[in-house]
Amino acid sequence: MINAIIIEDEKSSMEYLLSILKKNHPNITICGWASDVDAAVALITSKDPDIVFLDIQLNDGSGFDVLDRLESSMPFEVIFTTGFLDYKERAMDYFAFYYLNKPVQEDEIKKVLNMYELKRSAFDMRKYQAFKNQLESKNHTITIFERNEYISLKFSDIIYCEAGGNYTHIYNTKGKSLLSSKHLKKIEDIIDSTDFYRVHRSFLVNLTHVKEFTRDGLLVMSDGNEIIISIRNRKKVVDFLTDYMEK
């Protein structure tokens, strides 16, 4: 059996989630429900659950407040629930957290719990801290996992990103190249900034670091590196850069 706790400040949302779990997942026992930070911390501490269904926004704080008040070693897994469909979803996907979008759908719960059954993992504190820092930076940073550590990088410090198969090389103002395990399209979705533009299928550039460009499709970046735009996209990219620089 899997013991679970629901942390949710809306009783109707809690009851809805509870009904789906009882109907479709008899192997999960709900050990309790809490609607505020203090009660949530106390309940998790006393019940020692395998899973915590955790709402990101609570009336008196957030799910982050709950986790921050617990011991650094958390033997349970967290399944975030959220009504936000924009950055939080992309960030959670990027950090490979389990999460459910509200209103919760039965098929989504099944998919998430199936993944949990396969992994049966505990909560990753380093991953959580990187995720939390990225959200609190108000979409101005990206966090890269490299050489067994999480590195936070401001968008403004990224010069350009270059595809390398299923990986992406991220070049920054410190003269370093960070290697992300995410492909370039995923990096583009995470950054989601008007200052970044896909000038080539293999290059995503920070337009604020374009020092010079020519009608022949040559971009000179702030670090001195040059990027050649493909002939097929050359006119479109050059016209876009011209308009951007004139603003």
Rank of each mutant, 00 (worst) to 15 (best):
H169K: 14
F155E: 13
G165H: 04
I187N: 09
I158R: 01
D195I: 08
S152P: 04
H183G: 05
I159L: 11
K186W: 15
E162A: 10
L184T: 07
S181G: 02
S152I: 04
S181W: 04
N148H: 12
L153A: 01
R201F: 12
Y167E: 01
C161S: 15
G165D: 01
D157P: 04
E162K: 13
Y150T: 01
I159C: 08
D189R: 10
N166C: 03
T143I: 06
K186T: 13
I159V: 15
K154D: 09
H200Q: 07
L179T: 03
Y197W: 10
R147V: 05
Y197L: 13
H183E: 14
K186N: 15
F196A: 08
K174P: 02
S180E: 06
F196N: 05
S152K: 00
K182W: 09
T143C: 09
D192W: 03
R147L: 05
N172M: 09
H169W: 10
G175V: 01
H183L: 11
A163H: 11
D195S: 12
G164L: 11
T173F: 01
E162P: 04
D189N: 11
K186L: 15
N166F: 04
T141N: 07
I187A: 08
F203A: 02
S202T: 04
F145W: 08
C161E: 11
K174L: 14
K185N: 13
H183A: 15
F145C: 05
E146L: 07
F145R: 07
S193D: 14
S177D: 00
R147H: 06
I159E: 02
S181F: 07
S156M: 12
T194I: 14
L179P: 00
D189A: 13
T141Y: 04
F155V: 03
L153Q: 02
D157A: 09
D195A: 12
R147D: 09
N172Q: 13
Y167R: 04
A163C: 13
K186F: 15
A163V: 14
H200V: 06
K182R: 12
D195Q: 12
G164S: 10
I190M: 04
E146S: 08
G175W: 03
Y197R: 09
K186V: 14
C161R: 00
I158P: 00
H140G: 07
K185F: 09
H200R: 06
N172K: 13
S202Y: 03
D195P: 06
L178P: 04
E188L: 12
H169V: 00
T173H: 02
S193Q: 10
F203V: 04
I142C: 01
I151P: 00
K176N: 05
S156C: 08
S156K: 14
I190V: 07
I187H: 08
S177G: 05
D195W: 08
T173I: 06
T168F: 15
N139H: 02
H140V: 10
V199T: 08
E146M: 10
T173D: 03
H200Y: 05
Y167C: 01
Y171M: 11
S181Y: 06
K182S: 14
C161Y: 11
E162G: 04
T194C: 14
S177V: 13
I190T: 03
F145N: 06
S181P: 02
I158A: 05
E146I: 02
R198Y: 07
S193P: 09
D189V: 06
D189M: 10
E188K: 12
N166A: 07
R201Q: 15
S152M: 08
S156Q: 13
K185L: 14
F155R: 06
F155L: 10
T143W: 02
Y150S: 00
E188H: 13
Y167H: 05
